[in-house]
Design a protein around this nucleic acid. Structure first.
Lengths: 125, 125
DNA sequence: CTCGTGCATTGATGGATGTCGATACAAGGA
DNA sequence: TCCTTGTATCGACATCCATCAATGCACGAG
């Protein structure tokens, strides 16, 4: 099924005289992340890859008491309340926000150091 | 149309005796990124939010000569050649890879400091 | 207990995106 | 010149995702 690695189909004249005429480059033997690790990192980074979620994090980060309820988030984002709750759930599941109910209101706050660790995942992949 | 900010519908007994019985929280007056800036950051981060692209970057980063051709990328990712070219184009357009043709082969290399600047976009949003 | 309010969940839908097969382009060799 | 090989692009398809309207749930007030 796979016919990728057939670079020289029966080439006999090469032997070892030609230095590297038909090899494109050395494959590189350094450590490479596997598929599972790549999926884990991608799942984390996907939580940030949305403009509305970035604005959510920015607003919550700029909050005075480091706690923000949903009613203060629907208006500046120009989104419906269900959509805001949806984005907040994604950020909570990704481990970047914590949710705390007080009365009928739900307050969200940043998890300390979560952004920094996510950024570290990017640099040393 | 918008009926969000009508928290107290004709509440007269509150005056200023009750501290903050029906206000959920202070809106927070800190600086917040606008929609345009959020879209710019999201476009950058979206380039990373894919496991195959993360593996691509990892392989290229681990390459000895810091240059890798496409033929060395299709096999470890278990993807077809058009798909690999598609991902590479996304990473080039995002400014994280540079492309250089030598003969019939195309070599890709990491842009120095690109990952670090992208990580910085995450921390100080 | 009933009502009202803030928030979460569900179902549906339009748009974005990853993947592949087919094809076109570029460059070197016969 | 024609042919071969590596790469990029195109068209199509399947899936994912952001969004909304409708509904359900939790909690406080009366």
């Amino acid at each position: 099924m796979f016919v990728n690695q057939v670079h020289n189909g029966g080439m006999e004249t090469l032997d070892n005289a030609a230095p590297a005429a038909d090899t494109c480059c050395t494959p590189g033997a350094g450590p490479v992340i596997d598929e599972q690790e790549a999926q884990r990192k991608a799942r984390i980074l996907k939580a940030f890859a949305d403009p509305k979620r970035l604005q959510l994090l920015s607003i919550i980060k700029a909050g005075d008491s480091a706690e923000t309820c949903v009613c203060n988030l629907t208006e500046p984002l120009e989104l419906g309340q269900p959509t805001v709750s949806h984005h907040l759930k994604i950020l909570v599941d990704a481990g970047f926000l914590t949710r705390r109910r007080r009365g009928t209101w739900a307050y969200y706050s940043l998890v300390p150091g979560a952004l920094e660790s996510a950024a570290a995942e990017l640099v040393d992949l």
